[in-house]
């Protein structure tokens, strides 16, 4: 009898999970921690099943999942000309949608759900905030309009959002320099 060795299912990319906890006594960067990296389907679930659900995190915390080598911040070379598809949730949606949306987001990422445009994806971030949670998919270049809009359409579909609901894409450069709480959308789908 030949026993097949258990072969894990490799992902196209290696991904890193980062955790951010808001501690006002520390610098922003010191609050951001790399938790672990994974590059197989099995290792992804082993991690996912063993960490706190997003809806159970305290306010001010983030999870970020980025391709290995890209830091979850605007300053990273691969992010600085990029932007994000942003999903803003109402307070009630923390209990009904947040965990599902975040899981679907991760499946889009690790499964390379945007076809060849997946190479434009840098990562995804979920912010848990008292005033309303946010989930975003970050892409590398706002000028790659075809990639950005394709990713946006597929992402919206992946989350199961109704066609009439419009989601927006914002350039990090605009978010970083905004003088009020409203950042203009560069694309919408």
């Amino acid at each position: 009898v030949v026993v097949e060795p258990h072969v894990k299912h490799p992902l196209q990319n290696r991904w890193a999970l980062w955790f951010y906890k808001n501690d006002k006594s520390k610098m922003w960067q010191d609050n951001l921690r790399l938790i672990t990296k994974f590059d197989t389907v099995e290792d992804f679930w082993a991690l996912y099943n063993n960490i706190q659900l997003v809806s159970k995190l305290s306010s001010g915390c983030d999870y970020s999942v980025f391709k290995d080598g890209i830091e979850p911040m605007w300053e990273d070379r691969r992010n600085k000309c990029g932007g994000r598809w942003l999903i803003t949730l109402s307070k009630q949606q923390r209990h009904t949608e947040l965990d599902r949306f975040w899981k679907e987001t991760l499946l889009c990422l690790i499964g390379e759900g945007f076809g060849s445009f997946s190479r434009d994806v840098c990562g995804a971030v979920v912010n848990v905030r008292a005033k309303g949670d946010k989930i975003a998919v970050w892409t590398t270049n706002t000028e790659n309009g075809e990639a950005v809009t394709y990713i946006g359409r597929k992402y919206k579909e992946g989350l199961g959002l109704p066609p009439k609901l419009v989601i927006g894409y914002q350039a990090h450069a605009d978010t970083a320099t905004k003088s009020n709480s409203i950042t203009k959308n560069k694309f919408v789908v």
Binding site: H9, Q12, W45, N49, L107, I110, G111, S118
Partner: peptide, 20 residues
């Protein structure tokens, strides 16, 4: 080729490790 995995395929593995 690119390693693309469909959602349902990925979901199929979520509890596999816990069952074996």
């Amino acid at each position: 080729g690119k390693r693309q995995y469909k959602r349902d395929f990925l979901l199929g593995f979520q509890f596999m490790a816990a069952c074996t």
